[in-house]
Write a protein that binds this DNA or RNA. Structure first.
Lengths: 205, 205
DNA sequence: GTCTATACTTGGATAGAC
DNA sequence: GTCTATCCAAGTATAGAC
């Protein structure tokens, strides 16, 4: 009871930030590889090299490659949920609904395109192998998407607008951007604001 | 000269539809595997089994796994370009621009979600390995995307709308749909029409 | 054109020293 | 907690018969 729930990474919660230090480095190295080449194409040797350790050493921290992928996804989803929530807190609960949606979209795009690799890894390839751990990841995904569901519900959309399809449309547009985003073009925020603007006028009544 | 350009698949052009018959079956089997699991996770043995042949037999038709992927992508891009072009012909060159865009979006979504697997394989994972063949695939991709660029240019958008970002937004929304589409929900056409509608009013000036 | 058989390489994972 | 060494399975690709 004294320690609450010891966080798996020791980073988000701020509790015990130094313990299991290499575990998080390992996850970050893996996330980089997964983003660059995809999960299946990434080898444990590559991950080990990226983390500056020997392949065998990975298995002290993770029981399998799939276990490592799961950890990366959980971390990524936890972070993106926290980042978007923080952005919403910053803009305030009584800000206009479209402004709140824009804030969330900006947070999502910044995280996906310029933030930590954990976010990006989540969107690159979801673990399609049927594993017990997949349920947890799916649950976290659902939690995150619910943020956007609520924001859309608050817009007071016209009755002939299907909020679910609209949400999937927006999320698809955002997530696909990691395939074409270039650092010398629009910033993630600018892209997000354009997306919202292109939807806004037609639907705000 | 008599045969014009002998088509690589013998299917699209209508010339010599029976020759190299198994080659196309093989490509289709491979496309199925690539869509289901991704390129890297797919093995030559699986492809062979799906095509009803022995692993070694593949190499009579294709020199490598990457060669097979390239062929699948080229075929998919050739087909989606043809299908979208045909849909535009059907709706007519002097139809209203938004109607033409809708027709193209419907063709794209139908192809991606319910059409031949070749289309879908193209969107699942692009060949990121640097290979000479990648240039050809990229060129075909560019050709296809140019169709949408032209359609958007014809809309006569307000000056403060960035046509490129709008195109990428729409393409992202569409391509991401293959991750959430269910046969018991909206049809591909219905989804495409919603997407277009949610963009239309705000932007038609 | 397809098969069988197999060469050769790479990958995930383990064992045990330190 | 990390390393070295290694096992074993699985992968791509080839050779040659039919």
């Amino acid at each position: 009871m004294a320690h609450l729930q010891p966080d798996q990474t020791g980073e988000l919660s701020g509790i015990r930030p130094r313990r299991n230090n290499r575990r998080l480095e390992l996850m970050r190295a893996a996330a980089h590889c997964f983003v660059a080449q995809g999960y299946a194409a990434t080898t444990m040797r590559e991950i080990a090299a990226a983390a500056g350790m020997q392949p065998g050493s990975i298995y002290y921290h993770f029981s399998s490659k799939l276990d490592l992928l799961t950890a990366v996804h959980e971390e990524g989803l936890r972070r993106i949920t926290a980042a978007t929530g923080a952005a919403l807190d910053r803009v305030g609960g009584d800000a206009p609904p479209w402004e709140r949606l824009e804030a969330a979209a900006c947070a999502h795009m910044s995280a996906l395109l310029e933030g930590d690799v954990f976010f990006t890894a989540v969107m690159r390839d979801l673990p399609d192998e049927d594993t017990p751990s997949r349920e947890r990841v799916t649950a976290l995904r659902d939690d995150y998407e619910r943020i956007f569901s609520r924001l859309l519900a608050d817009l007071g959309l016209p009755r002939d607008v299907d909020a679910r399809t609209l949400r999937l449309m927006l999320m698809g547009a955002m997530n696909w951007a990691h395939g074409w985003y270039r650092k010398d073009g629009d910033t993630p925020d600018a892209i997000a604001r354009k997306f919202i603007r292109y939807l806004r006028q037609s639907l705000s009544d």
